[in-house]
Measured scan of single mutants.
Amino acid sequence: MQRVNMIMAESPGLITICLLGYLLSAECTVFLDHENANKILNRPKRYNSGKLEEFVQGNLERECMEEKCSFEEAREVFENTERTTEFWKQYVDGDQCESNPCLNGGSCKDDINSYECWCPFGFEGKNCELDVTCNIKNGRCEQFCKNSADNKVVCSCTEGYRLAENQKSCEPAVPFPCGRVSVSQTSKLTRAETVFPDVDYVNSTEAETILDNITQSTQSFNDFTRVVGGEDAKPGQFPWQVVLNGKVDAFCGGSIVNEKWIVTAAHCVETGVKITVVAGEHNIEETEHTEQKRNVIRIIPHHNYNAAINKYNHDIALLELDEPLVLNSYVTPICIADKEYTNIFLKFGSGYVSGWGRVFHKGRSALVLQYLRVPLVDRATCLRSTKFTIYNNMFCAGFHEGGRDSCQGDSGGPHVTEVEGTSFLTGIISWGEECAMKGKYGIYTKVSRYVNWIKEKTKLT
């Protein structure tokens, strides 16, 4: 034993070699072989497995989906700052455009905790909710729209109204504003409101030439003092309507412009014939205590009207009353817009006519005020429907199939267009061939041609 100890002390290297040989010859039971080890760690190889990531292109799944990435790591994937920024906006807080917040056709661009709407022409605001041009839906104005110097929408209202708090709607500024039905039992019968379409306001006024200088022999019209197929109006439903009495009662109609003036057809009036105007009328054979009678003290036909040349060209006249009318729910003026808007309103496509005229061709006159909704007829169809001249200051309205029309005794009465609950004068009943005849239409004086003249002559002093 002493000898062994001496050998170990003198030859430590020998001992180490012996131990190493023993270990190498022993069977290893701690580690699995290569094949079995792979069965336990069965993990798919990654895209760049075996390579240094710093030297390969980034992978979106590896960089940002398996674990949260930084902007720089995302930049490695896209290799483009702009594309990385677009991805980053949604990656950080989701897609803010998912709810489609942009209105009126706006395009949404996502941002971090926010979004941006790219608005089409005519709109602005956070969600493109603000109209900035009158060309689109009248700028959301209830009545009139004008573009300011910086191309912003400025709404306005006709006389007797003021802008509401929203700067879009119009509200009454006087007790009985024009064009409004205020009798409670008839307010439910107000005709369907007309909503502004998209309009090209630059070209809204037709490029028409008034044929002022045409000389033409007097034409022989049949029954051209021209509501057939209409309905009984309720008291106060058309408070701007008046009836004219002269040699015979209810020979023509008219509309209240203001307390002192009536507008009617020029062919209705004769110099030297006494005319009485009755406002607030409903049943011409009954006294309903809503009527107001006034005498006409002055007749002003349009300066281009000449019955000797043509009885229905420039067929418009103004009547001055001896005493002002007292405005109330049964006696209310009709609204008159400017030339541009009167023309736009007419193009809405349908209007209402009213009167006490004959209820059928050569038949009896109506006792109760009649009204009828009539569609506008395109000019080409209008011209083809008659052998008589249709001037540019006239328009056609009615039904091709016949059966409904204005008729004798309705002449001078109103053709009105309702705009968001307020009625505007767009025409004056003038003439036609018979009444409600198939293929024939009622012919009306186009008020847009005469609004400046009306307003100039009827100013209240």
Rank of each mutant, 00 (worst) to 15 (best):
S411R: 10
T445L: 05
N213E: 08
D150M: 07
D338G: 13
G421L: 03
Q2T: 05
G50L: 08
E10Q: 07
N306Y: 04
N343T: 14
F360R: 15
T381D: 15
S430L: 15
S49L: 11
I454Q: 00
G50Y: 09
E420S: 15
F221R: 11
G412M: 15
I262Y: 01
K311W: 04
F176S: 05
H400W: 07
L32A: 15
K234F: 10
K152D: 14
F87E: 15
H282V: 10
L130S: 10
E270K: 07
G427I: 00
V227M: 09
R3N: 09
E116L: 15
C396D: 01
E420P: 01
I299K: 09
I300A: 02
K126T: 08
R46C: 14
T209N: 12
N222Q: 07
D95N: 09
K260D: 02
I443N: 01
K89S: 06
Q216N: 06
T225Q: 12
N295T: 12
G351P: 02
F399R: 02
S169K: 08
D223V: 06
S329A: 04
A207F: 06
L372F: 04
E420Y: 14
V202N: 12
D338A: 08
G105K: 11
C382P: 02
P333K: 04
D338Q: 05
R364V: 13
A380E: 08
N304L: 13
P12A: 13
N166F: 02
S385F: 15
C178R: 00
D110C: 10
S184Y: 09
P172S: 06
L23F: 15
C252Q: 00
N166S: 04
T194A: 06
T271S: 10
Y450G: 01
H267R: 05
N151C: 04
F87R: 15
E171C: 05
F360I: 14
D111C: 15
W261F: 04
F31Y: 15
V174D: 07
C69L: 05
R62Q: 12
P414Q: 10
H282T: 12
A266K: 02
I429F: 13
P101G: 08
E35S: 09
D405A: 04
R180Y: 05
I443D: 01
L372N: 10
E285V: 11
E171W: 06
V296Q: 00
G179M: 00
P12K: 10
Q57I: 12
K438A: 04
S99C: 13
V153W: 09
H289D: 05
V277P: 01
Q143W: 00
A279G: 03
D150C: 03
I262F: 02
H267F: 02
P172R: 05
I390D: 15
Y450L: 00
S204Y: 08
V326L: 12
N306A: 08
C435P: 05
A266Q: 02
E35F: 05
A380P: 13
I316Q: 01
K459R: 03
A250K: 05
S204Q: 03
R404Y: 15
E259A: 07
D131T: 06
S148N: 06
C382L: 04
E420N: 12
V353P: 02
P414H: 15
G58Q: 03
F345I: 14
N135L: 10
W261N: 01
E456N: 06
M65R: 05
I428G: 01
G105L: 07
Y91L: 13
E231A: 04
V30M: 12
V174G: 05
L321A: 00
N36Y: 03
T458M: 03
V278I: 04
W88F: 15
A366E: 14
K51N: 11
Q237A: 10
H289L: 04
N147Q: 10
E142G: 04
C97L: 02
S217T: 09
C382R: 03
D33K: 04
S329N: 13
A366M: 09
M394G: 03
E320I: 01
F31D: 08
N42S: 13
G413N: 06
K152F: 09
F388C: 14
N283S: 03
C155L: 00
E171R: 04
H302G: 01
S204P: 06
E86W: 10
G403T: 14
E27P: 01
F251D: 04
S70D: 05
E323Y: 06
E401N: 07
G21R: 03
T461S: 07
N42K: 06
H289N: 11
R191T: 04
S169Y: 06
N343F: 03
V273R: 08
K260I: 03
E159G: 05
A266M: 03
T218C: 10
L460E: 08
W261L: 01
N304V: 03
K347Q: 14
G106F: 03
A366P: 14
A266G: 04
V374W: 15
L321V: 07
E433Y: 08
P175N: 04
V174Q: 08
T215G: 07
I275A: 03
T158V: 06
L14H: 02
C108G: 01
W431M: 13
G363I: 07
D315I: 01
Y391S: 14
D249I: 05
H34K: 06
V199I: 10
C435W: 02
D322K: 03
G398D: 05
G349Q: 11
Q143C: 00
G402C: 12
V278K: 05
G439Q: 04
M6L: 12
F87L: 06
L23V: 07
V273W: 12
Y341V: 13
L23E: 02
A337H: 00
G398Y: 06
E82H: 14
G106T: 05
F360K: 12
T290H: 11
D249M: 10
T84A: 09
E142P: 02
N104V: 04
Y312V: 09
K311S: 08
F31C: 15
I136P: 14
H282A: 11
Q167S: 10
G106C: 04
A207Q: 12
L367A: 11
Y352A: 10
R226T: 10
Y341N: 15
L130C: 11
H267N: 04
K188H: 04
G125L: 02
S354G: 15
V174P: 01
W240C: 00
I429A: 11
E208Q: 09
E10V: 10
T215K: 06
N295V: 06
D232Q: 08
N328P: 00
T342M: 04
E86K: 15
H400K: 05
G409L: 06
G432S: 13
K168Q: 12
R449I: 13
T84D: 09
N138T: 10
K234A: 14
C141E: 00
C407A: 05
N222K: 07
E10M: 10
N452S: 10
V377P: 02
Q96S: 14
E420L: 05
M437L: 14
T16I: 07
E418P: 11
K311A: 12
D232F: 07
T84E: 12
N393W: 11
H267G: 04
L325G: 00
E285T: 11
W118G: 03
P12F: 09
N203S: 07
G363F: 11
F78R: 15
A308C: 10
N147M: 10
I40Q: 15
W118K: 12
E193R: 05
D410Q: 15
A380K: 12
N393L: 02
G413C: 13
A173I: 12
W240N: 00
N135I: 15
G122A: 07
L383R: 14
V228R: 08
I299L: 07
E165A: 05
Y161W: 08
I443P: 03
I40D: 08
V77A: 10
N166Q: 03
E165L: 07
M8Y: 13
Q237D: 05
L425H: 02
K89A: 13
A149E: 11
H415M: 08
G439V: 03
H400Y: 12
T209V: 13
L319H: 01
N343E: 15
I454S: 01
A9S: 08
D198Y: 10
G179R: 01
A149Q: 09
S182P: 07
P175T: 04
C145N: 00
V263P: 00
C157Q: 00
D110E: 14
S329R: 14
D315L: 01
V451P: 00
I390R: 10
T186S: 03
S448D: 15
I17G: 00
C178W: 00
D93N: 15
A266T: 01
G229N: 06
E82F: 07
S25N: 04
L460M: 15
V331T: 12
L346P: 02
D378W: 03
V257W: 01
N304C: 15
L52M: 15
